[in-house]
Amino acid sequence: MTAGVPAEATGAERDVWAALTTVTDPEILRPITELGMVQEVTVDDSGHAEVSILLTIAGCPAARRIESDVRAATAAAPGIASAEVVVGVMSPSERQAFIERVRGDRGSRPQQFGPDSLTRVVAVTSGKGGVGKSSLTAGLAVALAQRGLSVGLVDADVFGFSIPGLLGLSRDGRTEQPTRVGDMILPPVAHGVKVVSIGMFLGDADPRTTAVSWRGPMLHRTIEQFLRDVWFGDVDVLLLDLPPGTGDIAISIGQLLPQAEVLVVTTPQEAAADVAVRSAIVARQTGQKVLGVVENMAGLAQPDGTVLDIFGTGGGALVAERLSDAEHGDVPLLGSVPLSPAFREGGDVGTPTVLTDATDPAAAEVLRIAERIVSTGRGLAGRPLGISPR
């Protein structure tokens, strides 16, 4: 039986309840019927259906979409001639019940992605800025979501945050903000990816002209809050877009997520490769494993079929070679992403090219890298799976 259906519901009302199971909360990605958001369903003899729904807070940013989806699902139910949606707001007790439904038995956990978490955590790092790390991270997140995985993305580059813009969550000087329900923060969803960034917490300030200038302890607390208070739920993969270099945030990530795998991004230029190796070494010092290396900006295809190596060649292979040794094993070069005007344009408009043109050389390579990341898997030896025999 559909969750929440009253025992006295008529056949038509049960049909509407069943139709509403297809409506998902756009931030939590679970049916609203499971979340206690459907308060009442009535259908009269003429086939007119009235559905009362409860939003978590007044001014919920997803209100219009939820209302529209509820109306469409109700109207599509068998025997319904017309549909009306009545929107209300949860009481404090209903809101607390909602939080408990979302968090389940993990409500008191201080951190969602501890050592026992089954979520695969991948930190994307680089030794220096300007190597296209954020664009690559955004593309990989969407590519993984396209494969049917549940994906979260933390923009940990507090000073140089750019993920909201790359995924279409920041336009015309306004950035979509998370929904706060009690002490729980629900991240916006873009192209199937749950996203959080410091750019979402600047109020009405224009992110294009606002700078964040914080010292180490403030940075650590911010990353800690992202991992504790922002509710991602049961995501298969959590990507973190780290700032360049080996500073405070890289160290904090190592302390908070020692089980994370690290994806190192470099350009073909040898100078960039030298610095990229250092970022991987710092990750290893905190116990993290280097998943692999991605070479970005690896040549620009010309109309005659030749490739112009603007930033040289071989940097990615060089980083992989330097990070491979007897102690850590072979570190693979997972891919080499060429320069692509379309790939850059996709980031500028907030729609990654992996969604719009899989034949674009850069998009095709990012999709291939995503496939390789999935195929490498992650060992679960020694990790509790949260199940017990019956």
Rank of each mutant, 00 (worst) to 15 (best):
L257D: 03
L300N: 06
M200K: 03
A301L: 11
V51C: 13
V131E: 11
Q288W: 14
G130T: 13
A260C: 07
A381W: 10
K194F: 15
E67D: 15
G312T: 05
P78G: 07
A138G: 12
L242E: 01
E84S: 14
E40H: 09
G139A: 03
D116L: 10
V366C: 03
V319T: 08
T119S: 15
A272D: 07
P26I: 13
G335E: 08
T125I: 05
D69H: 14
R228E: 14
A145Y: 03
D25H: 15
G160F: 14
V293P: 02
T119N: 15
T137I: 02
S388L: 12
P352H: 04
G382L: 15
I99K: 07
E224R: 14
A62K: 08
V38A: 05
L144Q: 06
I251Y: 07
S126P: 05
V275E: 02
L55E: 02
G245F: 00
L140C: 08
V193R: 02
A301R: 12
A358P: 12
Q146R: 13
E345W: 14
Q39H: 14
A276I: 01
L239S: 04
V38N: 01
R30M: 10
S197A: 09
V331Y: 01
T210M: 13
V142I: 06
D155V: 05
A298M: 12
Q259R: 10
T353P: 05
R120W: 01
R322H: 06
G79T: 13
A370K: 04
R368N: 15
W214T: 02
R284F: 06
R372C: 14
I373P: 00
D360K: 11
T2S: 08
L240R: 01
I163L: 02
G148K: 12
T42P: 03
G379T: 12
H220R: 13
G114R: 08
Q146F: 07
Q225L: 10
P384N: 06
S170Y: 07
G148F: 10
V277I: 15
V293E: 05
V16D: 01
G299P: 03
P178W: 07
E176I: 13
L239A: 04
T2Q: 07
A3P: 11
G59H: 13
L118E: 06
T222S: 10
A276P: 00
D116A: 13
R278F: 01
S82L: 07
P268K: 06
L263S: 00
L149R: 15
Q302F: 11
R174G: 09
D15T: 03
C60Q: 12
A320G: 02
G165V: 03
R147H: 11
